[in-house]
Simulated assay, not measured.
Amino acid sequence: MKKIGIILSNLGTPDSPTPQAVARYLWQFLTDPRVVDLPRWRWLPLLKWIILPRRAKRIAKTYQSVWQAEGSPLLAITRRQQAALQQYLENQGLDCIVEIGMTYGNPSMASAVQNLIEKQTDEIIVLPLYPQYSSTTTGAALDSFTAVLKNHRAIPPFKFIHSYHLDENYIQALAESIKVRFKSDEFLLFSFHGIPLRYEENGDYYREHCKQTVLAVVDQLGLSENQWGLSFQSRFGREEWLQPYTDQEMKNITARQGVQKIALICPGFAADCLETLEEIEQENRALFLQHGGTEFQYIPALNADKSHIEMLAKLILNEVRER
Results as ranks from 00 to 15, higher is better:
L188Q: 01
R238G: 10
N252G: 11
K179D: 00
L215Y: 11
T246I: 08
Q233Y: 10
R235F: 15
Q212Y: 08
P196E: 03
Y245E: 06
S231Y: 00
Q227F: 08
A175R: 00
S191T: 09
L197R: 12
Y245V: 03
Q227S: 09
F190G: 01
D204P: 04
D219T: 11
P196I: 05
T246W: 10
Q220G: 06
W241L: 03
S234T: 08
H209T: 07
R198F: 09
R198Q: 14
K211M: 14
Q243H: 13
N226L: 08
S231R: 02
G237N: 10
G229F: 03
E186N: 08
R198M: 14
I195C: 06
G194L: 06
L242T: 02
G203V: 10
M250R: 01
Q233E: 10
L221N: 04
L221V: 05
G237M: 09
R207K: 14
H193K: 05
S234G: 05
D219V: 03
S191C: 06
E208S: 14
L188F: 02
E201L: 15
D185L: 13
D247S: 07
S191N: 07
Y206C: 06
F236R: 12
W228S: 03
Q227M: 09
D247G: 02
H193R: 08
T213S: 03
L188V: 03
K211Q: 15
G229S: 07
R181C: 11
D204E: 09
D185R: 12
E201M: 15
K179G: 03
F192R: 01
T213N: 00
S191V: 04
L242N: 04
T213F: 03
V214E: 02
Q220W: 07
E208F: 14
E225P: 11
C210N: 06
H209M: 09
F232M: 07
Y206W: 06
F182N: 02
P244I: 01
G237S: 13
P244T: 02
F232D: 02
P196L: 05
K183A: 13
W228L: 00
E176M: 11
L230G: 01
Q220T: 06
L242M: 05
L215G: 06
D185W: 14
E176K: 09
S177K: 09
D185E: 15
Q227G: 06
D185G: 14
S184P: 13
W228Q: 04
S224T: 11
Q227T: 07
L223E: 04
E176W: 04
R207A: 11
R181N: 12
D204V: 02
L197S: 13
F187K: 00
E225Q: 13
S234A: 12
R235C: 11
Q248Y: 09
S234M: 08
L189P: 04
F236W: 13
P244M: 05
Y205K: 14
L242S: 03
Q227N: 10
N202R: 15
Y199E: 13
E200L: 11
V217P: 01
I195S: 00
F190P: 02
K211T: 09
K179I: 05
E249K: 11
Y245R: 05
G222D: 11
E225T: 13
